[in-house]
Nucleic acid binder design. Structure first.
Length: 496
RNA sequence: AGCGGGGUAGGGUAGCCUGGCAGCCCGCGGGGCUCAUAACCCCGAGGUCGGUGGUUCAAAUCCACCCCCCGCUACCA
């Protein structure tokens, strides 16, 4: 039995999750469900990143302490993931004791190894925000940097901080990016590698003075500082599976680690994360799966752009499974996908309602009407049997290449063949349509199994209605089991 | 500017690595079916495969140059 460990980024709970978070999370969930289905020992992790200045601020604004604030916010994440049927095995919060413990131990370890040093940090600072702004963040007015929020001039400020010797890992990183297949799709690895070659690697500040950022993990060796959030956050992937206290558990899952991330946080999950792991003598994860974004009229969805599609809206219109299906069917790791309601409606109506739902309905009705709901095992039409085997085969290949959209495409293609087969054999005219309908039931079973990781509630309903188990797509054993069709449900109501 | 991705019928895309009749989905036109969620099936129209030049018996596919679009460019999850 293989092991499969999959993670999402841990989300920053300063606002409720939207469809972008769902995109990432449903993708991870789909892969987790697929691996459970084929029998892998699967561990699926998600959670929240609860430290840092932004949360400190948000809490202050509401007049509550940060912990109270994140305690409230984290409920939303859990509720949304429950709504979307996210089958996580563990929900980590970076404020959890065991995680803080890991952070303290690891930062001390870096310190002990001499990989940290104290030095001056300087940059453009906004006193109102109490925050530094990078060159890409601030606005230039009259040749001078200004705060993008307060529109006031920034002041050049210096403070003491701790640096991590990231620069020592340049060659290591280049090797990893150019010679391994960890970063997927590969084009993202090339992007980072080119940037490394061109710009090199600078050491990175890993702490903040406590007077400025109090909401974080204190440096064990200098209580005047808190650990900067990215370091804190990245460690969730190992603290959640027992590092460093439960090495048996850690060693079991870690070699199978797959990090799902959006392309915006690629740099952190390659250069910084890999270097930290190397520094701690921990092997690298197996894969970093990077995806592009859903965009709305060409603009990345986000609060500031005001073009966010809410999870509620999607679920209201398409149901939970419909939402999950649409997201996964449109999933594209390499490039952004411009989405519209018309596109969503189209995918939902044609593929789920017309192709899948309607086939279930018509075959169900025929079996009940012509054969009193009972199908004994018999031979499967050869052409269809071959189509099923081919589809299952491609499906597994695509899923294992993390191409969920194409995997779904193979299921839909098979279902279209099913609909064509109904038209060809006209079971309603046959005196004994057993073979046709049994063939169709087997096709439906195969397609249902294929769709199961993405639309688990619906496929369970289909399996229940037709009386078959959801098993691994690797061993479907065609022609062995009969069916008792209890009902022929309408699975998806058309919309639009 | 550099780097990465992309420019294929009205829209969305596959194919490009490993040259050889340009495939699929939506939409559109016609036909069939009547088991089914006005669903399903079949047929058809529609393409200078961004441009120019080159390699080749043959180029969407390889090479060169150019144009256009998107993204990334470090402390921002």
């Amino acid at each position: 039995m293989s092991v499969f460990y999959i993670t999402t980024p841990i989300y920053y709970p300063n606002a409720r999750p939207h469809i972008g978070h769902a995109y990432t999370t449903v993708f991870a969930d789909t892969l987790a469900r697929y691996h459970r289905m084929i029998g892998d020992d699967t561990f699926f992790l998600t959670g929240t990143d609860e430290h840092g200045l932004k949360l400190q601020r948000a809490a202050e604004k509401k007049g509550v302490d940060p912990k109270t604030f994140v305690d409230e916010m984290v409920v939303y994440y859990k509720e949304y993931w429950k709504l979307l049927n996210i089958s996580y095995d563990w929900f980590i919060r970076t404020t959890d004791d065991y995680h803080v413990h890991t952070v303290e131990k690891m930062i001390s370890e870096l310190h002990r190894k001499g990989l940290l040093y104290k030095d001056r940090y300087s940059g453009w600072y906004c006193a109102s925000c109490e925050k530094y702004y990078s060159e890409t963040e601030y606005e230039v007015v009259d040749d001078k940097p200004h705060c993008p929020i307060h529109k006031k001039p920034l002041e050049w400020l210096e403070e003491e901080t701790y640096y991590f010797k990231l620069s020592e890992y340049r060659d290591f990183m280049l090797d990893v990016l150019e010679k391994t297949e960890i970063v997927y799709p590969k084009s993202y690895a090339v992007e980072v590698a080119n940037r490394l070659k061109k710009e090199g690697l600078r050491d990175v500040s890993i702490a903040r003075p406590k007077e400025r950022v109090s909401w974080g993990v204190e440096l064990p060796f200098d209580r005047e500082y808190t650990v900067y959030v990215w370091f804190d956050a990245l460690l969730n992937y190992i603290s959640a599976i027992g590092y460093p206290d439960d090495l048996q558990r850690f060693n079991h899952y870690w070699p199978a680690a797959h990090h799902v991330i959006g392309k915006d946080i690629l740099w952190f999950h390659t250069v910084i994360w890999f270097s930290v792991l190397k520094a701690l003598d921990i092997p690298l994860p197996k894969k970093v799966l990077v995806h592009a974004f859903l965009v709305n009229r060409g603009i990345k969805m986000g609060k500031s752009a005001g073009n966010v599609i809410s999870i509620e809206y999607m679920v209201d219109r398409y149901g939970v499974d419909g939402t999950r299906y649409i997201l996964m069917r449109l999933m594209n790791m390499a490039k952004d996908v411009d989405v519209t309601q018309e596109l969503f409606d189209n995918v939902y109506n044609t593929e789920l309602a017309d192709v899948y739902g309607n086939l279930i309905r018509r075959v169900g009705v025929l079996v009940k009407r012509k054969l009193k709901g009972r199908l004994e095992p018999t031979s499967v039409e050869q052409g269809i049997a071959e189509a099923i085997e081919n589809a299952l085969d491609s499906y597994s290949k695509e899923m294992e290449r993390f191409d969920v959209s194409r995997a779904l495409g193979t299921a839909i293609e098979l279902l279209r063949k099913g609909n064509a087969y109904v038209n060809e054999t006209k079971p309603w005219q046959q005196s004994d349509p057993s073979k046709s309908l049994y063939t169709l039931a087997e096709l439906i079973r195969a397609a249902t199994v294929m769709l199961h990781p993405v639309i688990p509630s619906t496929t369970s309903r289909t399996a229940e209605s037709f009386g078959f188990p959801i098993t691994t797509p690797k061993e479907l054993r065609l022609g062995e089991n009969g069916y008792t069709v209890k009902e022929s449900p309408i699975l998806f109501k058309k919309t639009g």
